[in-house]
Amino acid sequence: MLHFFFFFFFFFFFTGNVIPAGMSLKSIGLELRCQCIKKESRFIHPRQIQNVELFPSGPHCKDAEVIATLKSGDQICLEPTARWVKIVIKKILER
């Protein structure tokens, strides 16, 4: 337990000196939990989508996550098992 404490103490001490103010851990790839609570499976026209981010499952979250940023600026989580989302993911991975 003591090793655990020292690990986090040094981690936060050193990252506090390395990570600029205002930068989130997510922006450097260190998100520590799932981002998607509710996932949308209804079709969203590709013209409404500005960007799509794929996050594979891992220690931070047991499920793969697909987060779309709409042109309106809103971010929504997409259901990765929905047929249309699978097609979008496939096209992204082919690039």
Rank of each mutant, 00 (worst) to 15 (best):
G16N: 12
E40Y: 07
L93F: 06
M1S: 13
K62P: 12
I87N: 10
I19M: 06
P56W: 02
T69V: 07
H3Y: 12
K26E: 15
E53H: 06
G29P: 04
F12D: 00
P46Q: 12
D74V: 00
L30W: 14
E94I: 09
R47K: 11
R47S: 12
F5H: 10
K86M: 09
V85H: 01
K39W: 03
F9A: 10
F12Y: 15
K90P: 00
C77G: 07
G16P: 05
A64L: 08
V88W: 07
F55I: 15
E79V: 03
K91P: 01
F43D: 08
I67H: 01
F11G: 01
L54E: 14
L93P: 00
V18I: 15
P56N: 08
G73R: 02
V88L: 15
I28F: 05
S41I: 03
F55A: 07
P46C: 01
V66P: 05
I37S: 11
G29H: 04
I28D: 10
N17R: 08
G22D: 11
L93V: 07
L32A: 14
F13R: 05
P46G: 02
G58N: 06
F8I: 14
I76D: 06
C77I: 10
A64S: 13
A64T: 15
L25K: 10
I87Y: 05
P59A: 09
V85Y: 00
A82C: 03
P59T: 11
G73F: 00
P80H: 06
C77K: 02
I49M: 01
S41T: 12
E53C: 02
F11W: 13
S27R: 09
E40Q: 10
Q50E: 12
F43Y: 14
K38G: 07
K39A: 14
E65D: 06
Q75G: 06
R33W: 12
T69C: 02
K39V: 15
R42T: 15
R33S: 15
I19A: 01
V66T: 11
C61N: 09
Q35E: 12
I76W: 00
I76S: 02
F11M: 11
K62W: 07
K90C: 04
D74S: 14
F5Q: 13
R33A: 15
F10A: 10
L78W: 00
F11H: 07
L25H: 13
G29K: 00
F12I: 08
L32F: 13
G58S: 01
F7S: 09
L93M: 12
I28Y: 04
H60V: 06
I44F: 04
L54C: 02
G58Y: 05
E53W: 07
P80K: 05
V52A: 05
F4H: 14
T81W: 01
Q50Y: 09
Q50M: 07
I49C: 03
A82W: 03
I76G: 02
R95P: 13
S57H: 09
F55C: 04
F6K: 04
K26N: 12
L78E: 01
A68Y: 08
R83P: 07
I67N: 03
N51C: 07
F5N: 09
R83T: 15
F11D: 05
V18E: 08
P20I: 02
A82I: 06
